[in-house]
Design a protein around this nucleic acid. Structure first.
Lengths: 128, 128
DNA sequence: GGTTGACGTTCCAGTCACTGGAACCCCTAT
DNA sequence: ATAGGGGTTCCAGTGACTGGAACGTCAACC
């Protein structure tokens, strides 16, 4: 199949697929005229990439996961370790955002939000 | 004060401060020899920027907030609106990360994590 | 067989918010 | 005079794409 169909079926923009080839995550075949020709295996890798990226894995983590995916003798523990590290990172990010939300929420609550120029949000942001 | 002291007192890398000048968020004076010369007002703006960025406001949001900060006749409602929009965005991001965490957590739980090659995480990522 | 239009190709530049590094200048102390 | 620790500019790179230009290919229709 060519890139349009692969794009539809994997749910990834064609641009992104070309980019993934550029950085060596996939290596689709080529037709005589130079069109990319995606096999089912290529498609599966693209779907895999879409999911893993959707779960917030970085490209390099995806590369590592794909290597494990290809490696028939991998230990599932290797995969689990990567996934668990990533879970920790997600947790940290959530905590960070929740701290932001709490701080900003306090500032917003303190702001009367009318036409007067006095604003606790700006004061809160600038106090040293 | 020159950039090193401003950097220390604002808690921002000198590189970042130069960048902020580049994109017009601050315009410190210059000495005869070309060194940047930060006033207290400049420092306050830097602190303001550091806080706002720390709360996840984008540079353009910071620019808008700084304009409101400078505008003696602003309405606090304008500031509140920006902050509330940002709160919504933070909430969305948290929800997204929590969905990721749930999915990935399920996959990790399903993985026995031993030396065997069979791995539910990889299977889960590739199933279409 | 010619034309149209959708699809494909490559390559370059831009995004966002910095960050690193090179090459150079200035200031103070010894 | 020199050494060092500042400062300066400018260019390039990050991550993960995305937009656009300029061009090639394919299938369908007349």
């Amino acid at each position: 199949m060519n890139i349009g169909e692969a794009s539809d079926r994997a749910g990834l923009p064609a641009k992104t697929i070309r980019y993934y080839e550029d950085i060596g995550l996939i290596t689709p075949a080529r037709t005589d005229s130079g069109y990319r020709d995606f096999s089912d295996t290529d498609l599966h890798r693209l779907i895999f990439l879409g999911r893993a990226r959707g779960l917030g894995f970085t490209i390099e983590e995806c590369r590592a996961l794909l290597q494990l995916y290809d490696d028939k003798s991998r230990a599932s523990a290797d995969v689990k370790r990567i996934a668990q590290q990533h879970l920790v990172q997600i947790g940290e990010k959530i905590a960070e955002l929740e701290a932001m939300r709490a701080t900003l929420s306090d500032l917003v609550d303190a702001c009367h939000g009318d036409h007067r120029p006095d604003c606790p949000i700006l004061t809160g942001l600038s106090r040293s």
